[in-house]
Simulated scan of single mutants.
Amino acid sequence: MSARKKVYIAGPDVFFENASEVMRKKGEIVQEYGFAPSTLAEDDLSPDGLTAFQFGIAIGLANERKMDEADFIIANLTPFRGISADVGTAFEVGYMRAQGKPVFAYSNSGRDYYTRLTADYYGGKPLSNVDGVTRGPDGLMVENHGMADNLMLDTAAAESGGCFVAEEARGEDVLGDLAAFRKCLERARSFYSGR
């Protein structure tokens, strides 16, 4: 790699009780692999004089500027508050993909989207097949593409030159485990060393 590439670190980690510590640790790991980490957008902002809504907008715009400055993204797409990835992180993946930047993503769940949907969301209730379409008990179509999450997230990673690492975390800290994060960094280093 010639100049140090900058990585936008995305995920629900910002909601953790120890968010600053986690982001600092991720930043250190990013540097170990020869990349420059993004920083938390909130670090450069103050809520003084703003309503909660205005401060939320300021954070969103600051995150967009950080993504504009980055060369690629590593997104923690581990299911968060449900069966799928954090919605804000999913937006960030799409934002980077729309800019033609590589998307490296990981999930600390080894179970695919279909398994989480049928087992966790529908609680194992029987599915039906209507005119060749699999439907849940609520009548909604159930997609089964063998992907880690919604097909748009898997597609963004696969088609951008990045990857989507999905494997079961080994410890108790399912959301915070960094083994798959490191694998994304290895893949990103290989991606950029080949250029």
Rank of each mutant, 00 (worst) to 15 (best):
M1G: 09
S2Y: 15
A3N: 12
R4Y: 03
R4M: 12
Y8E: 05
G11L: 05
G11M: 09
V14P: 00
F15H: 09
E17D: 15
E17W: 06
N18W: 12
A19N: 08
A19H: 10
E21K: 14
E21V: 14
E21Y: 12
E21C: 01
K26R: 14
K26D: 09
G27V: 05
Q31F: 01
Y33E: 01
Y33N: 07
Y33I: 06
G34P: 01
G34V: 05
F35A: 07
F35K: 04
P37R: 10
S38K: 09
S38G: 15
T39K: 11
T39D: 11
L40T: 02
L40S: 13
A41S: 14
D43M: 05
D43T: 00
L45W: 08
D48M: 12
G49A: 11
T51Y: 06
A52M: 15
A52G: 02
Q54P: 05
G56H: 09
G56F: 10
I57N: 15
I57T: 11
A58E: 08
I59G: 05
A62Q: 08
N63T: 09
N63R: 13
K66C: 03
E69M: 11
D71I: 10
F72M: 14
F72E: 13
N76T: 03
R81H: 11
G82N: 04
I83D: 01
I83Y: 05
A85W: 03
A85K: 04
D86P: 03
V87A: 15
T89W: 07
A90M: 12
A90T: 15
F91E: 00
E92F: 08
E92M: 10
G94F: 05
Y95T: 07
M96E: 04
M96I: 10
R97S: 15
R97D: 12
G100I: 06
K101I: 08
V103R: 03
V103Y: 05
A105H: 00
Y106M: 06
Y106A: 01
R111W: 01
R111T: 02
R116H: 08
T118A: 01
T118N: 08
D120T: 11
Y121I: 00
Y121W: 14
Y122G: 07
Y122V: 05
K125D: 09
D131G: 08
T134P: 02
R135F: 05
G136E: 08
L140Y: 14
M141F: 10
V142D: 06
E143I: 11
N144Y: 03
H145Q: 00
H145A: 08
M147P: 03
A148G: 02
N150V: 00
L151N: 09
M152Q: 00
M152T: 07
D154C: 11
D154L: 00
D154V: 11
G161E: 10
C163I: 14
F164S: 04
V165M: 11
A166N: 02
E167S: 15
A169W: 00
G171H: 12
G171R: 13
G171K: 10
D173Q: 13
D173F: 10
V174Y: 07
D177S: 14
D177W: 10
A179H: 12
A180Y: 02
F181A: 03
F181Y: 13
R182Y: 07
C184K: 09
C184S: 08
L185S: 10
E186D: 14
E186H: 00
E186F: 01
R189L: 09
R189H: 06
R189W: 00
S190G: 15
Y192I: 05
G194R: 15
